[in-house]
Amino acid sequence: MQQEDVQPDSVSFMGVLNACASVVALEQGRCAHEQIIESGWDLDVFVQKSLVDMYAKCGSLEDAWRVFDKMPSHDVVSWNSILGGYAMHGCGKEALKHFERMCEEGVQPNDITFVCLLSACSYAGLVDEGMCCYAYMTTVHMISPKLEHYTCMVDLLGHAGHLQEAENMIKAMPCEPDVTTWKAMLGACRIHGNVEMGERVAKRVLELEPENAAGYVL
């Protein structure tokens, strides 16, 4: 596109930033950011959101905050990008702290917000905090849990050694658990050496993905 001297617009840059975020290509993302500034698209709110998302997913949370703080306003999408970045990099307490700031700014969380928070709590081993987030989501914000929320809770409880509670969570799910949920459970069985439960869970994993090596490795 550049060789043909076609000038990129905001959609072009958003596509490039999304690609960089997908493969954690931080240096290429920074180069794209430089071009965005040179082209004058750095004040476009959608490009700004893409920049926050790219930097957060690539682990450069300081850069993500720099862009975030320059934005004229913050909606749930931009906040979710920040929280998702903390979740990906195991910063559970930081994610919870910034979720409080989000609420103080009057931004209403959505279901994706709580996926980010529960993931962050799971990675950081914050069981009590994760349980509180789950309760807060369902009782205060009246958000019905989706498959992703249940999987996060199974992972949270399982990693902490609460295997029976995690299995009970799966049994109580109103939707059919997918292979990701079962893998989270199997991974917890591996960590805590529960062979009996692990054999039972492994059967479900291998039924759903018989040709995927990950299940056999676990």
Rank of each mutant, 00 (worst) to 15 (best):
M1A: 13
P8M: 05
S12T: 15
G15A: 08
N18R: 12
A19Y: 03
A21Y: 04
A21Q: 04
A21W: 00
S22F: 08
V23E: 11
L26D: 01
G29L: 03
R30F: 03
E34N: 08
E34P: 01
I37L: 02
E38C: 12
S39E: 03
G40D: 12
L43C: 14
V45M: 13
F46S: 10
V47G: 06
K49E: 10
S50F: 00
C58L: 00
L61C: 03
L61E: 05
L61M: 13
R66V: 10
P72V: 10
V77G: 05
N80V: 11
S81E: 04
L83P: 01
C91F: 06
K93T: 01
A95N: 13
K97P: 08
E100W: 07
C103Y: 06
C103I: 03
E104S: 14
E104K: 15
G106V: 14
Q108T: 14
P109G: 03
N110W: 07
F114Y: 14
V115S: 12
C116E: 00
L117Q: 05
Y123V: 08
G125R: 09
G125A: 07
D128P: 05
E129W: 10
Y134L: 07
Y134P: 02
H141Q: 12
M142S: 15
L147V: 14
D155F: 08
L157N: 02
H159N: 15
E165I: 03
A166N: 00
A166P: 00
A166D: 00
N168A: 08
I170L: 09
I170C: 10
P174S: 10
W182F: 11
K183G: 10
L186E: 09
R190A: 10
R190N: 14
E199H: 13
K203Y: 01
E209H: 12
P210N: 09
E211P: 09
G215F: 11
Y216N: 09
